[in-house]
Design a protein around this nucleic acid. Structure first.
Lengths: 375, 375
DNA sequence: TTGAAAGCGCTAACAG
DNA sequence: CTGTTAGCGCTTTCAA
């Protein structure tokens, strides 16, 4: 190893010269298909040795320019501020690397325009695949990619133009709601409707969870009024404000002594909050912040549940039910699709062929580590 | 827009043909330097229109192959399982995009071999810059990149061969330790040494925090024994086990009725734990899990502090002091370095010139949102 | 104001 | 068993 720094990167031509061979020989050896080219083992060894000595790094830009496949697999993700997406990204990277793919992730902060911007940029960098995770408009991404012949898959939030792998939101939410209703009954000795908080009306998952939420109520024989659906977005602040506003309309106060939701009137007690279904950990953050400030804690805390999991919430002492989405299973499904499409690499089956568009729903896992302390 | 899908990607030659111009004109226009080439505004408009109509996506592989600059900026990150790194990545991406750079992140799970593997892969994809965040061996990465002439920067954990931007761990830890000692005194009515838990002896941050930890004790006139330094790694399980083992040697029990740390003996009470300095939120996860299981909660909970911040911990009711590392300031420092190097783009100042290697320490922010509920 | 042409580093026929 | 050659899509002189 003579050089520590060089102004110009080593190429296969440099290696070829050092090995006294041709660039194509070097290329073949370095790509591991020298048996096919029947290059002598001796030459192969020599080339490999020299490459290592020179600390050679192949130029993937050039290689994929020529071979028309980059081995880059892109993923778009909304946020890094919770365990769910963090886990998705970690699993995705690991599984991509196992397959010799190069994963690139980009975070679009739930910004629709950034999403399509990011997709276009990824196309420019010649991704072979694009996974749209939690995208606000997955179909737009699929369309853009289709123009360049790049296959896409949706994760977490479904689209109609590409196969989607998502949680079974309906069943998960229904089961979660039942558990909260049950806990609420235990706590308060009666069956009141819950409040649904967080998420967006416009997104499929929120709608499905809402459907499960309502169905669980129906099975308990409870009606849920529109006023109890607070789909205010995901941000913690929005959830905090939405809850505050809702409660202020609910509880009797100096400013509005009579302004109570009709069906709650007979039961209402100033310090008794309705049970809460929180649609994400980030919304939960706002909810808990508000409850803590107001002193709705300990005995005064209502039964609660959260669609998504966070380890500290499990320890929060709030006795909060959680649903953990099955990230490993979801990514297994994703890579099964990718693997199988790589196999049947004929032009007959277009990746996002109309007939092939499927929706795969993965059951989430119920969690209840609550009640660990602070009873 | 006639085509929805095409088997072959559109190139500047296609656009050139459609525009009745040459490829080089198209290239110039699309790169925004058509004033320099004095191309007619009319032609420029036409080309831009056609490009949009065709949903043209430039091939960055080809472009950077030719121009020898990719505009790709890579970052290596250890984990996505905490707010600190999540925040780093989000800020990094946003700031990179502001500068027209393409950020690519890769997560190496604190695995040294994966780290250098990832660095090499990024080099193959022709990154213009590489930021090594929390790397176990930053200098190795700097060396590998230097071979290809790619400048690097260290973040979070420093190296000696490239400029590093890190938190002021010593001062942060010292202040945090003082606060915990103070709280402990309030709670237990006396001054006992704390236990330091989490992190690695081998990493600079842990050592510096330990130094601040000891110095704070010294200022309080307390001696810290070796036995109280539990640098067991970062994983939650490891912290949980280390704490369990430590306590079992500390407290009298059937199996070891006399096996107590000498200087604690006079004060010991079965249910009174020593105060805790926890070196990361992920270690804290294990610590709290164990404490909850054992019932060391509420009044029985010792004073605690955590180097790093998590919103749910703030709501945990454990009255846990936290230190929040100043991620925006850290990334400002990073991009200041990048920006200034891009400015003085002469060959005279090598990016990682020996004389230029600096260490920039950013003061972390103290946080105390504790005591919100569950008093 | 524009086009032709060379070549970035690599791969893949094809020709020995 | 190995080398020559022709591009992949783009940028960049250079020449008009």
């Amino acid at each position: 190893m003579t050089q520590v720094r060089q102004t110009k990167k080593t190429t296969i031509y440099d290696l070829a010269e050092l090995a006294g061979a041709s660039a194509s020989a070097v290329s073949a050896v370095l790509n591991g298909n020298w048996k096919k080219r029947r290059i002598s083992e001796k030459l192969a060894q020599k080339i490999i040795r020299i490459a290592e000595e020179q600390n050679y790094a192949p130029n993937k830009q050039a290689s994929s320019l020529r071979s028309n496949k980059s081995k880059i697999i892109g993923m778009i993700v909304p946020k890094y501020d919770n365990r769910y997406f963090g886990s998705i990204v970690e699993h995705f990277e690991a599984m991509a690397r196992e397959r010799g793919l190069f994963p690139i992730i980009t975070c679009t902060r739930r910004d629709p325009s950034l999403e399509i911007e990011a997709a276009k940029t990824m196309l420019s960098y010649q991704v072979d695949w694009l996974i749209a995770t939690g995208a606000t408009d997955p179909d737009k991404i699929t369309q853009i990619c289709a123009t360049s012949g790049v296959p896409t898959l949706n994760l977490d939030l479904p689209g109609t133009l590409a196969t989607s792998v998502i949680s079974d939101n309906y069943s998960g939410a229904k089961a979660l709601t039942s558990r909260i209703l049950h806990n609420n009954q235990q706590r308060q000795g009666r069956l009141d409707p819950l409040v649904f908080i967080g998420g967006r009306n416009s997104d499929h998952n929120t709608r499905e969870r809402l459907r499960g939420f309502c169905e669980a109520h129906r099975e308990y024989g409870i009606e849920v009024s529109e006023a109890r659906i607070l789909t205010c977005g995901y941000a913690a602040e929005k959830a905090e404000n939405a809850l505050r506003d809702f409660i202020s309309t609910l509880l009797p106060s100096a400013s509005n002594p009579n302004n109570m939701e009709p069906n709650l009137k007979p039961n209402i007690e100033p310090n008794l909050l309705p049970g809460l279904f929180v649609n994400s950990t980030i919304s939960l953050e706002g909810v808990i912040r508000w409850m803590s400030k107001q002193g709705y804690i300990g005995k005064k805390q209502p039964a609660m549940g959260c669609f998504d999991w966070d380890p500290f919430v499990a320890l929060l002492g709030h006795d909060i039910e959680m649903v953990k989405q099955d990230v490993p299973a979801m990514l297994n499904a994703i890579f099964e699709l990718i693997d199988s499409s790589a196999q049947g690499d004929n032009n007959l089956t277009e990746p996002n062929d109309k007939a092939q568009v499927r929706r795969i729903e993965i059951p989430p896992l119920p969690i209840n580590e609550g009640t660990l302390y602070c009873s």
